[in-house]
């Protein structure tokens, strides 16, 4: 291909163009290139508009209406917003979701970071360990939640078997209000560790080796290298991870829907679970669900932007 390039680039020599003609041709060329670029973006843009931009606008419209899925749609003004802000279960749902995020994200990040550092040190068998650690992430939530029932089941779960072995009382992991959300968190951490470990490991491998050699020559010990090199250098990876984890975890639904369905005593009601219930499960409170969805959208945007602010600076 490159040899061809040499033979073909012998340009016609006498190509005298006036300045004006030159500019006109250049503009035409630029226009053609822009047009090509837009054509390349077009297929993606169609899906983007049809299933992202339009839904957001439609969602906003539906927050001022009720019905529309089973019953007829009718305009209700701000009633949905008023109801959402007054609803006790909405407060519970937001509280549970945020508490879950505050438990799950730090836990999964610390474990994954430790495992990534350990994997980086493993001279042999690293790739086998990586693959095995990734397997839980491959489980669909339906499967992961089923697996987890074998872990936390009151009578024949692994966790209680271990507790009994150590002479402790077996616990009702999913059936008691103060343990249920923690059991869900454990499941999500278990399932998430593989993914985040891989991501952090990819970040670690990409770090410049020379800096570590220089630091070692200067007599920095392992902890100092970690504290003053790894942590600051990993900032872009952490930045991406924290923002994406917040966005994903605030949408907690699958495991809750399958394992506890919001119970016991609403202790595992999450925002998305409540949206799904009000809209599709047994009620037809579409407007209420829409207003709650819009709140979730704003909540996620708000938190993500705060995190971007905090992590970008410094």
């Amino acid at each position: 291909m490159q040899e061809q390039a040499v033979t073909q680039t012998t340009r016609p020599r006498a190509l005298a163009l006036s300045e004006e003609e030159h500019q006109r041709l250049q503009r035409r060329y630029q226009r053609r290139r822009s047009l090509t670029a837009y054509l390349f973006l077009l297929p993606g843009a169609i899906f983007f508009f049809a299933f992202l931009v339009i839904p957001i606008l439609l969602l906003f419209f539906y927050t001022f209406n009720n019905g529309g899925i089973i019953s007829e749609r009718e305009w209700v003004g701000l009633a949905n917003w008023r109801n959402v802000l007054r609803d006790d279960l909405v407060i519970t749902a937001i509280k549970n979701t945020v508490v879950y995020c505050l438990m799950a994200i730090p836990a999964v990040f610390v474990i994954s970071m430790v495992l990534a550092l350990v994997l980086q040190q493993a001279a042999r068998g690293g790739s086998a360990f990586r693959s095995l650690l990734y397997i839980p992430t491959l489980a669909p939530y339906v499967v992961a939640a089923l697996l987890w029932q074998f872990v936390v089941h009151r009578d024949f779960g692994i966790l209680n078997m271990i507790l009994v072995e150590f002479g402790q009382e077996p616990r009702n992991w999913l059936g008691s209000p103060d343990l249920a959300l923690r059991s869900i968190t454990m499941l999500e951490v278990w399932r998430g560790v593989g993914f985040w470990t891989l991501l952090f490991l990819a970040g670690l491998i990409g770090l410049p080796k020379e800096l570590y050699q220089a630091a070692a020559i200067d007599g920095a010990n392992a902890w100092q290298r970690f504290r003053y090199l790894t942590i600051p250098l990993m900032r872009p990876t952490f930045f991406f991870a924290v923002v994406m984890a917040t966005i994903w975890n605030l949408q907690l639904f699958d495991s809750v829907s399958i394992l506890t369905n919001g119970g016991p005593q609403n202790s595992t009601v999450t925002v998305v679970w409540y949206i799904q219930q009000t809209t599709f499960a047994y009620t037809d409170k579409v407007g209420f669900g829409a207003a709650l969805s819009f709140m979730l959208l704003l909540l996620i945007l708000f938190l993500a932007l705060i995190e971007i602010r905090l992590l970008r600076k410094r």
């Binding site: 299933f51 439609l58 969602l59 899925i69 994406m244 949408q251 809209t279 599709f280 669900g289």
Partner: peptide
């Protein structure tokens, strides 16, 4: 500007668009 729109839209949770997507 368009790429900024793409970046911003990374933050849109699909779960929140359940209702309008269903209607569409």
């Amino acid at each position: 500007a368009l790429f900024l729109v793409v970046l911003m839209s990374l933050m849109v949770p699909f779960a929140a668009l359940l209702i309008p997507t269903f209607i569409i």
